[in-house]
Amino acid sequence: MKPYLSIEKLTQRFPDGAGGDMTVFEDATFGVEKGEFVVILGHSGCGKSTIMNILAGLADPTAGSVIMDGQEVKGPSLDRGVVFQNYSLLPWLTTLKNVTFGVSARHPEWSKANVEAHSTKFLAMVGLDGDVIHRKTSQLSGGMRQRVSIARAFANHPKLLLLDEPFGALDALTRGTIQDELLKIWGQMEQTVFMITHDIDEAILLADRILLMTNGPQARVAESVEITIPRPRSRTEIVEHPNYYAIRNHLVQFLGKRSKELAGQPMQPGEMNKPATIRIDKTTPSDDPEDTQTVLRAVNS
């Protein structure tokens, strides 16, 4: 049974400027289930954004395919909404018009009033209402702009929502607030989300599963780490959870050390570039209360 979103043997090469090719990643294979929140973590230059652009249909892979809901992804589509790091709002439109822009593209048959009501509802879901929604986006703070962008994406009910480092340009406090907004709206919508980030804590707070990428070139999606912390989560409570630091340490170790060690190894013939599933769960009752070893169960699927 194929997953809802299936990335199969995806390869991306760019000319290296010296007549040869530079392989960003090769034969990357992984899947995302419906309703799942998957975050991809990795250093700059590992090809995260390239994967994102391919999923969005804004770029074409050198080889391999992306299959969503039984159909191959070809070109951009309203079924795959994108929230860009720099918000990508249209500055000559008001906040509300930026959202209705998306909604009326999705539902051309809706009446103007209907489109506006729908848009207003989603703006309210990210905490924007009243006078603010009639302002031009240039008059909004960075955090508010990203909320508009999130509202625009969710209002369209895409089959897959792609978030490209959505909080990268925001300060830590604003980032926290909007992560909460994102969790809230995601919880109501059962939206399938694929997100890029650099921020480990953000990834743990939001994700069902974290994909870890080694450094590029020839990057691999090396591990798929399940986040074994129950939802609903809040940033103050998850740090108390016994699994939190175990998972966090694993991620830090990977990004700090192993992403380099595993980097740049060409594919062995017949080898699959498929992430190993890692499940870290310290809540499993242990016979020995003195046992402080991390329970590490690596299951290769």
Partner: peptide
């Protein structure tokens, strides 16, 4: 490019993109 990408991900046709995104952006 970001604005053009917004038009692309919203499946706007060439003419619609020209009038609703490129024209106001270049106006």
């Amino acid at each position: 490019d970001d604005w053009v990408n917004v038009a692309r991900t919203h499946e706007l046709g060439a003419l619609k993109t020209a009038f609703t995104v490129i024209l106001p952006a270049a106006a």
